[in-house]
Each structure stands twice: as structure tokens, then as C-alpha cells.
Design a protein around this nucleic acid. Structure first.
Lengths: 113, 113
DNA sequence: CCGAATCCTGTTTGATACTG
DNA sequence: CAGTATCAAACAGGATTCGG
């Protein structure tokens, strides 16, 4: 039992690391939106109209701090800001694919039954 | 652009379905704990001592409602309750593997730099 | 030992209006 | 366009107590 428990603890720790970064209602949807390329604030917002500007701003900042996305300011008129995935952000792809697959599976099994 | 946006919307919806079920601080850790086999309340609690009995109880109930786990009551003395993964819960494995992998990756890249 | 029930608190989230 | 400020609501989480 000892070794099983140790393995469990190790898995839990790795999962926690990941969850800390991508947890929340909006962070993953934002990353998915940026999967389709560099976007501006308003473009992301159009992909997910339910989020408030405040939350979007806040979550973008959090993702930037964790080096999942980059923020680029263009000093034009009007002001333009572009967001895009970093390599680390792109490394979330496998995880996102599995998440989407499971979501579809769940919908078939439960939601749509 | 139309087709790209439609694909994005579809991905977002699938991701939302999944997030609704597994989101939160404790649900995924609970599922990971049960990956190692059927366990009782106290055994799960020992895997993650930080969770309060209330939250553990609450989250177990939520997972049961979404048919991720089963709860079996044995009417012995003292009362025993066992939790285990359903097939649907086991279908989370690929996702959990990716989550753990990314967590390790993130730690190497950022946390441990 | 395995929880349920209650109460309480702080953080998260959100609606709305406003600014450079 | 890309946010910030403000205020309110919702929720996560903890402490404690109780019962089979």
C-alpha cells in the first residue's frame, strides 16, 4: 500500500500544479479561443460574450503572468492590443483535446440521454 | 472566418460541458485518488488531508450526481461507505494523464526555473 | 469511524457605468 | 478599442457541533 499511496501523492501534486494555472470558469475557454490564432481583446470577447470585461481582463492578466499567453500593445490610433499563445500555452493542446473529447463523451452519455 | 468561428464555438461548448463536471479545487484530486481503487471516506481524506469533511462530502455527492463515482453503503457496525469510479469516471483517465503531464511540464518550465 | 447540519466568512464573480 | 472603477451577488471554504 505504501507505494500506491506515494504514486497517488505524486499524481495529486502534478494535477494541482496544472489546476492552479488553468482552473476557473474562463481560463481554458480563453486559451481555446487563442488556439485559432492571435486575437484582440474584443475578438476574444466576441467568442465568449458571457464574460464581463473585468473578468476577461483579469483572466488574461493571470494567463500572462503564468506565461501561457503574451500581450502585445500597438501604439496606434485607436489603441490595439493583441494576445497570443506562448509555446507553453500551445503545449496545452493535448490536454485541451482530451478535455473536449471527454466533454463530448459526457454529453452523449448523460446530458443528451 | 465563418468556419473558424464555428469550430471555435463548438470546442468551447464541449470544453464547457467537461469543465462543469470536473471544475473546482477538489473534484479532480478525488477522482485521482479513486483511480487507485475503491476507497472509504477516511481513506480519500488521508490522500488529501487539506480538505474539510464537509467539502469532501459535498464534492463526493456532486461527483455521484454526475455519475462519475458510485457510493455504496454497507450496513455493518461501524457503518462503512465505499466510493469507486464508474465507467464514466474511468473514462476520465486520458484527460487526467494529460493533466498530470502538463503539470509536470509546467513545473519544470516555470515553477522550478 | 463516517459522515450530516448549521453557521459564518472571505474570495470570486458579475452588472453596470465610465475613461484614455 | 481596451480596458478600469464601483458596488452587489454568489459561492467556496472553514469551524463547530451532532448522530448512527
Amino acid at each position: 500500500m505504501k507505494s500506491t499511496e506515494a504514486a497517488c501523492q505524486y499524481e495529486l501534486m502534478a494535477a494541482r500544479d496544472a489546476l492552479e494555472v488553468i482552473q476557473g470558469k474562463w481560463r481554458i475557454p480563453i486559451v481555446i479561443s487563442l488556439t485559432y490564432g492571435t486575437k484582440r481583446f474584443g475578438e476574444i470577447h466576441r467568442d465568449m460574450p458571457d464574460i464581463s470585461p473585468k473578468m476577461l481582463s483579469q483572466e488574461l492578466k493571470s494567463l500572462e503572468e503564468n506565461q501561457i499567453i503574451t500581450r502585445t500593445l500597438y501604439d496606434r490610433m485607436p489603441v490595439t492590443v493583441e494576445y497570443s499563445l506562448t509555446p507553453l500555452g500551445q503545449s496545452l493542446q493535448n490536454l485541451l483535446v482530451e478535455l473536449r473529447n471527454w466533454g463530448k463523451h459526457f454529453r452523449k452519455e448523460i446530458v443528451g440521454k
